[in-house]
Simulated assay, not measured.
Amino acid sequence: MPNTPTDLIRRSLLQSAENFTALAEQAGLVADLAARMSAAIRAGDKIMFCGNGGSAADAQHLAAELLGRYLVNRRALPAIALTTDSSALTAIANDFGFDEVFSRQVQGLGRPGDVLVTISTSGNSPNILQAVQAAREIGIVTIGLTGSSGGRMADLCDVCLRVPSAHTPRIQEMHIAVGHMLCELVEADLA
């Protein structure tokens, strides 16, 4: 089988297209996640996001879309990425360990009625799992975005969207697409 750059590109794009076609079957779940987020904001609560690596970048991106704007000018929506405060991240990691970098922030910033969106391709990141557990103890709605296995997050989150892939780059592509859909739906509902 040839393995030219063109072959790699075609294979990747076709795989992505198949994954997105399969993801379309979960449209109702995506709409439910957006409704939960909108309800929290309407009640005066906030949306928190967290993830590691590329998922940390997605968390920041999605929080910014809600706080700033996605497609239309409207009021700022209360959203925060727990991945952005380098002083908090490094202090917590140094004093308590990296597994607690998000759970400590959830404990300090989260309130009952808030929503925590956790993003993990494996669904097994220890710091994400601890954040979900901390959120559940407070009464925060937990939403997970994972790969096809769901990992341990699938059983811990109130709602877990498992995108149809086990391949990290393809999972991340679908996560940001789902995140954009969530922002668009929330914005349309609340603008």
Score class of each variant (00 low, 15 high):
residue 125 S to D: 02
residue 4 T to M: 00
residue 117 V to Q: 11
residue 106 V to S: 05
residue 45 D to H: 15
residue 126 P to E: 00
residue 26 Q to S: 15
residue 70 Y to V: 05
residue 180 H to Y: 10
residue 82 L to F: 08
residue 171 I to N: 01
residue 21 T to Y: 10
residue 119 I to W: 12
residue 5 P to A: 00
residue 172 Q to R: 08
residue 38 S to A: 15
residue 20 F to D: 06
residue 18 E to D: 15
residue 34 A to K: 06
residue 173 E to G: 06
residue 34 A to V: 03
residue 74 R to S: 06
residue 190 L to M: 06
residue 34 A to D: 07
residue 3 N to S: 00
residue 33 L to H: 04
residue 113 G to R: 01
residue 188 A to V: 02
residue 51 G to I: 02
residue 80 I to L: 15
residue 64 A to G: 15
residue 23 L to H: 13
residue 35 A to S: 13
residue 39 A to G: 13
residue 79 A to F: 04
residue 48 M to S: 03
residue 32 D to P: 04
residue 123 G to E: 07
residue 83 T to C: 08
residue 166 A to P: 01
residue 67 L to H: 10
residue 45 D to W: 05
residue 54 G to E: 03
residue 139 G to V: 12
residue 102 F to V: 01
residue 187 E to F: 13
residue 181 M to C: 14
residue 17 A to H: 06
residue 68 G to T: 12
residue 135 A to E: 13
residue 174 M to A: 15
residue 97 G to F: 01
residue 25 E to R: 14
residue 18 E to T: 14
residue 106 V to Y: 01
residue 86 S to P: 02
residue 50 C to A: 11
residue 125 S to C: 03
residue 43 A to K: 08
residue 51 G to W: 05
residue 10 R to L: 07
residue 36 R to Y: 05
residue 95 D to C: 02
residue 18 E to Q: 15
residue 167 H to V: 14
residue 55 S to D: 09
residue 26 Q to I: 04
residue 174 M to F: 09
residue 2 P to N: 07
residue 48 M to V: 04
residue 88 A to C: 03
residue 68 G to L: 12
residue 77 L to R: 12
residue 191 A to R: 10
residue 182 L to W: 13
residue 55 S to T: 07
residue 17 A to S: 09
residue 61 H to P: 04
residue 28 G to A: 12
residue 88 A to K: 06
residue 74 R to H: 07
residue 17 A to K: 11
residue 7 D to T: 00
residue 15 Q to W: 00
residue 157 C to G: 11
residue 118 T to H: 10
residue 38 S to F: 07
residue 11 R to T: 06
residue 19 N to S: 11
residue 35 A to G: 09
residue 136 R to N: 14
residue 140 I to K: 14
residue 105 Q to R: 11
residue 115 V to W: 09
residue 76 A to H: 12
residue 69 R to D: 06
residue 190 L to K: 12
residue 159 V to A: 11
residue 179 G to V: 05
residue 180 H to G: 10
residue 96 F to G: 00
residue 136 R to M: 03
residue 185 L to G: 02
residue 156 L to D: 08
residue 160 C to R: 05
residue 182 L to R: 09
residue 14 L to F: 04
residue 114 D to T: 05
residue 85 D to N: 15
residue 7 D to G: 00
residue 159 V to F: 14
residue 10 R to C: 01
residue 113 G to D: 02
residue 161 L to E: 12
residue 125 S to E: 02
residue 22 A to Y: 07
residue 151 G to S: 03
residue 134 A to N: 03
residue 13 L to F: 06
residue 181 M to E: 14
residue 123 G to S: 04
residue 84 T to E: 06
residue 103 S to K: 00
residue 176 I to W: 08
residue 110 G to F: 11
residue 51 G to S: 02
residue 47 I to T: 11
residue 61 H to C: 02
residue 145 L to W: 11
residue 136 R to A: 12
residue 148 S to Y: 08
residue 14 L to Q: 14
residue 112 P to W: 02
residue 157 C to H: 10
residue 101 V to N: 01
residue 127 N to P: 01
residue 23 L to Y: 09
residue 52 N to T: 01
residue 79 A to E: 06
residue 101 V to L: 07
residue 128 I to F: 05
residue 159 V to T: 15
residue 126 P to C: 00
residue 6 T to E: 06
residue 156 L to F: 06
residue 124 N to I: 01
residue 108 G to S: 13
residue 103 S to A: 09
residue 15 Q to S: 07
residue 65 E to P: 09
residue 24 A to N: 13
residue 157 C to T: 15
residue 119 I to E: 12
